[in-house]
């Protein structure tokens, strides 16, 4: 085990994937010499060369569109979108082509593309640098959506995403980039016996009274809430895969606790929480002691940075929802 930041874990995972498969290439704005604005690709161009770590023109539709062509030619492109708010120029390519190509070609053409996107708020950034657009992608059939909750998950899942033959939109919780955690570097991400299935949710803290489902930046927040909760014992589940959703793990937990709180930074309206509430209610109607509650960002554009602490779910808001669930 090595203690490392999530940023370093991603960098190490990318390096490992590139060493194991020469078809893995990285493509994105400022990812070469600069190593990306968050330094996730730091040193990779130096070690693997400019033909495998390519600085792309400043054009997101171009980046993803070119990745489609590269994938058709047998490469496994891992593209970086610089910030969440800049993925939209590529939305057309992602939704119309990346997501549908396998189906449209009747299974003959695969799209093993990973679209890495730093996402979420909490870093005091200017507009368009703090968004949580994951629901748009989870809504789109043909795309898989992953987001790591800690450095170990980041190290393993980035490699699993690259190895996956489906396109994966990989959301990196940017405000957790600098959080440290233990990473088992000796673990071979291809070893299915030893590494967890990336599409399965993880129970990161067991508990009895309330299930708290979260992902990405909110995993740490919810673990802190679980630690702070004196009256109720919380079971914290890191969803990790937002599409497909692992409903089984949630159902198993809610059947025991009878209460579910879903936490995400993204707005509530038509979001991941709504999907989970509907599915869990269908499956666990007779076990539920309270309605499924959501703790989310409000249904407004991400606010100016000096207001973001009022917008983002925090420990207190999670515990407030826990109290409400317990009071039913």
């Amino acid at each position: 085990m090595t203690a490392m930041t999530m940023a370093k874990a991603l960098n190490t995972g990318l390096r490992r994937a590139m060493e194991q498969d020469s078809k893995v290439i990285l493509f994105g704005e400022d990812i070469g010499r600069l190593g990306g604005v968050f330094r996730i690709t730091d040193g990779l161009q130096k070690d693997f060369g400019e033909h495998r770590v390519m600085d792309a023109p400043l054009a997101e539709s171009g980046i993803v569109g070119a990745a489609v062509g590269l994938a058709m030619r047998g490469y496994r492109p891992v593209v970086e979108i610089q910030f969440d708010g800049f993925v939209y120029p590529a939305f057309d390519q992602i939704v119309s082509q990346v997501a549908k190509m396998h189906r449209r070609t009747e299974g003959t053409v695969r799209m093993p593309i990973v679209i890495r996107i730093p996402y979420g708020g909490g870093i005091g950034a200017v507009e368009h640098h703090s968004e949580s657009p994951e629901a748009y992608f989870a809504h789109t059939a043909g795309l898989r959506v992953l987001t790591p909750g800690d450095p170990q998950a980041a190290f393993v899942t980035i490699q699993q995403a690259i190895a996956c033959d489906d396109p994966v939109v990989y959301f990196e919780p940017k405000r957790r980039y600098w959080d440290k955690g233990d990473v088992d570097e000796g673990l071979d991400a291809r070893d299915r016996q030893r590494v967890p299935d990336p599409w399965q949710a993880r129970v990161v803290k067991a508990g009895d009274d309330v299930t708290v489902a979260c992902y990405g930046p909110m995993v740490r927040t919810c673990l802190e809430a679980a630690r702070a909760s004196s009256d109720a014992s919380l079971e914290v589940i890191d969803l990790q895969s937002l599409s497909p959703l692992d409903i089984e793990t949630l159902v198993a937990s809610v059947e025991r606790t009878g209460r579910l709180v879903v936490v995400h930074e993204a707005s509530a309206n038509v979001g991941i929480g709504a999907e989970i509430a509907a599915r869990v209610t269908e499956r666990c109607f007779y076990s539920l002691e309270a309605p499924v509650l959501r703790v989310t960002g409000f249904d407004i554009p991400y606010p100016a940075s000096r207001l973001e602490e009022h917008f983002l779910p925090d420990l207190d808001r999670v515990l407030d929802a826990v109290d409400r669930a317990m009071a039913y």
């Binding site: 005091g124 200017v126 507009e127 100016a304 000096r306």
Partner: peptide, 8 residues
């Protein structure tokens, strides 16, 4: 004002 983060 935008760079201070009080408005967009």
């Amino acid at each position: 004002a935008m760079f201070r983060g009080v408005t967009n």
